[in-house]
């Protein structure tokens, strides 16, 4: 999957904004938002918040987890835990990326936050890589990926499913599980874009 598509899914999360304009309720297909009154915070979908921000008619309220102290705590937890900890948002990376790119002026200590989130991502990715290593060495045929966010799953999608698939073929050819002709014809499709 294209990372843009992961972002697309993440953008339907809601976020709090402080409008500087007045408007009645807007009837979106995905649900009503509003009414908007100046300086009264209101929750809108991310994609809408970004649109309003671009038009400079609102301020973004960063999500409550987007604070240096909270993120430091998450980072420590992540380092000390053997498994993946639950992230404050299923799309933390998407949200952070969008907000730090287009609403930096609304986020206090944006640079520090950027660094910590990158650290958390790195800790998790290295954990992910070592788990994948263990999984493949142990000949696993399934694995739990609880608490991994979509963006993280997407980052190993080009590699892990394909590696497990190849292992499966090898095991299968040893026991002679399926006919030879089938494995050769299916192989031609396995490198195409459906799984990536």
């Amino acid at each position: 999957m294209d990372p843009d598509e992961v972002e697309f899914l993440g953008e339907k999360q809601y976020i709090s904004i402080i409008p500087t304009f007045s408007s009645n309720v807007i009837h979106l297909i995905s649900g009503d938002v509003g009414p908007f009154r100046p300086s009264i915070p209101i929750r809108v979908p991310f994609w809408m918040a970004m649109q309003l921000k671009q038009q400079r008619i609102c301020k973004i309220e960063p999500p409550e987890w987007m604070e240096v102290d909270k993120l430091e705590a998450i980072k420590e937890d992540e380092k000390n835990s053997r498994t993946f900890t639950k992230m404050p948002s299923d799309h933390y990376m998407v949200e952070a990326k969008i907000l730090l790119a287009s609403a930096t002026d609304d986020i206090p200590r944006a640079d520090e936050i950027r660094t910590i989130i990158k650290d958390i991502w790195d800790v998790r990715m290295s954990k992910l890589r070592s788990s994948v290593d263990v999984l493949v060495k142990n000949n696993g045929s399934y694995a739990a990926v609880d608490n991994l966010t979509l963006m993280e799953i997407n980052s190993i999608r080009p590699l892990l499913p394909h590696a497990l698939d190849t292992l499966y073929r090898l095991k299968n050819s040893i026991t002679g599980g399926s006919s030879q002709s089938q494995s050769t014809t299916t192989f031609s499709r396995s490198t195409t874009s459906f799984h990536s």
Binding site: S141, R157, L167, Y168, Q182, T185, T186, R189, H195
Partner: peptide, 30 residues
């Protein structure tokens, strides 16, 4: 006689919407 067929053994990520018991894992051995 040998049409291209999808590889149904390919690996996928899933999220469970409810409790499901006893999913049989096809691990390639018989």
């Amino acid at each position: 006689s040998q049409p291209v067929v999808p590889n149904v053994h390919s690996f996928v990520f899933l999220k469970s919407k409810q409790e499901v018991e006893g999913v049989i894992i096809d691990d390639g051995r018989n």
